[in-house]
Amino acid sequence: MGEIYQTKAIFRIEYELIKNIKTFRDDRGWSQEFLSSKMGFAINFVGKCESLDQPEKYNLRHVGIFQKVLSLKSLDELFPDGIPKDEQIVIRYKKVPKKKADGTPSKLMENEVVEIVVADADTKAEVNKHNKK
């Protein structure tokens, strides 16, 4: 099955926002680079946010930008299934080849989620210690 990697603990709302923005982007046929450009950020910004092995994530400042760039009537559209529980999760994933337009595997890799686990109290405490430094 290949090597399994895992993220540091992140809040479920962060992960859901990443997933939902990716869906909006894919539905419009926009590349990561195109959305980054429309947002006024570096060309690789969205790619870093969508990658599980990168520390960059969307924040509150980006929410307003998404509303404008995606022409959303309400911020509720960013979370069509409702606001997720305020819990931290760890995402286990593997790296798989991206698919080319013709469906064949590319040399470029992407992350495929294998499992999402609610972080235990020890993990949360450890994350908080590191964030205070």
Results as ranks from 00 to 15, higher is better:
residue 69 V to N: 03
residue 133 K to Q: 10
residue 73 K to N: 09
residue 20 N to R: 05
residue 64 G to E: 10
residue 88 Q to N: 12
residue 49 C to M: 02
residue 122 D to T: 14
residue 125 A to H: 13
residue 5 Y to A: 01
residue 75 L to A: 09
residue 49 C to F: 04
residue 41 F to R: 15
residue 132 K to N: 06
residue 21 I to Y: 00
residue 46 V to L: 00
residue 48 K to N: 14
residue 83 I to F: 13
residue 82 G to W: 03
residue 56 E to W: 09
residue 7 T to L: 10
residue 17 L to N: 00
residue 46 V to E: 00
residue 55 P to G: 09
residue 89 I to P: 14
residue 68 K to Y: 10
residue 85 K to E: 14
residue 54 Q to E: 13
residue 31 S to D: 01
residue 17 L to G: 00
residue 109 M to G: 07
residue 28 R to H: 08
residue 15 Y to G: 09
residue 112 E to R: 12
residue 121 A to H: 11
residue 94 K to N: 05
residue 38 K to L: 06
residue 132 K to G: 01
residue 54 Q to C: 09
residue 49 C to N: 03
residue 6 Q to P: 00
residue 9 A to F: 01
residue 132 K to E: 09
residue 51 S to T: 12
residue 45 F to K: 11
residue 126 E to D: 15
residue 113 V to P: 05
residue 57 K to L: 15
residue 99 K to P: 06
residue 112 E to C: 07
residue 92 R to Q: 13
residue 95 K to Y: 05
residue 118 V to A: 10
residue 65 I to P: 02
residue 35 L to Q: 02
residue 103 G to Q: 07
residue 90 V to K: 05
residue 112 E to V: 10
residue 63 V to F: 10
residue 103 G to H: 08
residue 106 S to V: 06
residue 15 Y to N: 15
residue 60 L to K: 08
residue 88 Q to W: 12
residue 106 S to G: 04
residue 78 L to Y: 09
residue 26 D to H: 13
residue 39 M to L: 05
residue 96 V to Q: 05
residue 89 I to R: 11
residue 39 M to I: 01
residue 87 E to L: 05
residue 90 V to W: 02
residue 59 N to H: 12
residue 15 Y to C: 08
residue 42 A to C: 01
residue 19 K to M: 04
residue 73 K to P: 02
residue 33 E to V: 11
residue 104 T to W: 03
residue 53 D to F: 00
residue 64 G to P: 02
residue 70 L to W: 02
